[in-house]
Design a binder for these strands. Structure first.
Lengths: 331, 331
DNA sequence: ATGAAAGCGCTAACAG
DNA sequence: CTGTTAGCGCTTTCAT
């Protein structure tokens, strides 16, 4: 087994000296330093992180928990996180939970178990008390998806206001029969986006129909296609659709395309997120742009606040969003 | 500090007994067991993984190194990896390198440093000797991108044969002026796909022109759009394009769309990977389907072979691929 | 069935 | 400038 003792022995010095060389303390004589470095590179020695982290009780590792990486939405947030984390000389471990509570728990335990110094959490914890308890003792930031009832710092956007804006845009374009393709309402964001949708309709006295309110437990293209199929079979067909995710909206557009229908002439479509693909569709997708990179970098900054000054409270933030108008709603 | 000693003290037993309870050894008296469990849950104790892993010298953690998560191509491979890894009671840490050698090195060192038990590597290592050296001592599998000169197990597809097939399809459809939108030729896959492209053209005696051979250092939609812009300005405009990645192909399609051109009437386009988005474009994209999930799960199986029987060699594999013909090449 | 104690690899306080 | 040593939290062998 190659360890610090072996290196010390080979170099004819003590383990303390080797440790000093490894950590660049500068208190080692030039000659000794070189001697030790030579042995290190000859043996190809790398200090064992477990020993070091155990001793230092820090890992300089941040865990980022996402439901999935198949939604490009997360890619840009993670990029924002990475850039800040790297600047602080930490590294990111990305973990996917598939929104399964048991997997969330296993990963969150890594923080308790000192494997990582903190966690940015983008998934709704089903066991709310567990998450709160973790956050009480360790650095935890909620990102995008959050729970207002908990006392855990979060960063997100105002989903209600954003979806209100999206639906109002459709209303402004003259639509009166507007459907919503939602995801699963166990998610806070889904509830909020529905709230904004309803608010806009109510404000303008427009009809709210059950057959225009669709839910999806999965968030993928197929779900969007299926939802559109249902809407096209509705007794009273909507003329516009608000999808709470670009993924769903793109699936919906595809389904229209398959049926020989055009957006926005036949049905207008608005998405949410502004993932890079949203501008690649034909027609290009009108959508709500979330400041994804900013969300990620803010989340990371908040986490470091918590790591560096655990006792000072970190304030939560809701960032601005922007309606990006493209062809799918514009004649 | 909450540790095994504290628990032992509170429960009035020795640390050894607590350890036995934690690890379910079954050799503890029922009564003692319950007493200890009560204390554990009261104190909300979680064993420190650093201590445990240091002692056991295993982490039950697998690292997966990808260049980026913004290409959905990786999402499905990672899914395949996850499913196998989870079955073995391990967990996956995903790390993004942006194809930067220094970042690759930092993460790869985590294997040497005993933080993880093995690594699946999907990025070209710039420091080839370093990777070989790591693979000589620790479990390493190359996935998708690999280096034939190294003695490291890999799993991928036959890129040359696949791109030959894609280009031959275009030839069969009557095209004689065929361009290639490639990525950076530092990548093995890029070199191989170009090779297949050239082979098909040569075999059919078709012209090979420099202005039809484009390279991109970045792999994103913009790169695809830019490449298409260049091709549309070529002295001799191609009638078909082979893009080595769906991302590039979709960007190219978008650019055509912006210029009022249709695929395949004006220019036919073939992509590569068959990411989910490829069937969502309008027109839908003809592409080479890689068995992404299978690639991932095979990679994980190979890694566990290496972990469980380090001295037995693991044989590399090239999996089959399939040409998926869609609207972008079919009248 | 339980406890005492060694030791995994490392760092840092202390001594010299 | 360098060495000795305690101890981070855990598991396991050896006693009892």
């Amino acid at each position: 087994m190659l360890n610090i003792h072996k290196v010390a022995e080979e170099a004819g010095v003590s383990v303390a000296t080797v440790s000093r060389v490894i950590n660049n303390q500068g208190t080692v004589a030039k000659k000794t330093q070189e001697k030790v470095e030579k042995v290190i590179s000859r043996l190809n020695y790398e200090p064992n992180m477990l020993g070091r982290n155990l001793r230092n009780s820090e890992s300089r590792l941040i865990m980022v928990l996402v439901p999935t990486i198949s939604n490009p939405f997360y890619a840009q947030i993670v990029q924002g996180i990475e850039d800040i984390v790297r600047k602080e000389n930490y590294n990111v471990f990305l973990c996917t939970t598939d929104s399964e509570p048991e997997r969330e728990k296993v990963f969150l335990d890594y923080v308790r178990q000192k494997l990582t110094d903190g966690v940015i959490f983008m998934d709704p914890a089903v066991e709310v008390e567990m998450l709160q308890d973790l956050a009480n003792r360790y650095p935890v930031i909620q990102c995008c998806e959050y729970n207002e009832d908990l006392n855990i710092p979060y960063i997100s956007i105002d989903d209600t206001q954003a979806s209100y804006k999206a639906v109002k845009h459709l209303i402004t374009m003259g639509h009166e029969k507007i459907a919503i393709i939602n995801s699963d309402e166990t998610f806070q964001y889904a509830r909020n986006r529905k709230k904004g949708y309803l608010k806009a309709l109510e404000e303008y006295g427009l009809p709210i129909k059950d057959e225009w309110i669709l839910k999806n437990s999965e968030l993928n293209f197929e779900a969007g296609q299926n939802s559109m199929r249902k809407l096209l079979r509705a007794d009273d067909k909507p003329t516009a659709i608000f999808a709470v995710s670009d993924i769903l909206a793109i699936g919906a557009l595809k389904r229209m395309n398959e049926e020989g229908l055009q957006a926005p002439e036949d049905i207008a479509v608005v998405g949410f997120d502004n993932i890079p693909f949203a501008s690649m569709t034909n027609p290009a997708l009108t959508t709500i742009a979330q400041p994804m990179y900013e969300i990620g970098s803010q989340a990371a900054k908040m986490l470091f606040q918590k790591i560096n000054t655990p006792d000072e409270p970190v304030s939560s933030t809701l960032l601005d969003n922007e309606l990006i108008i493209r062809e799918s709603t514009l004649g």
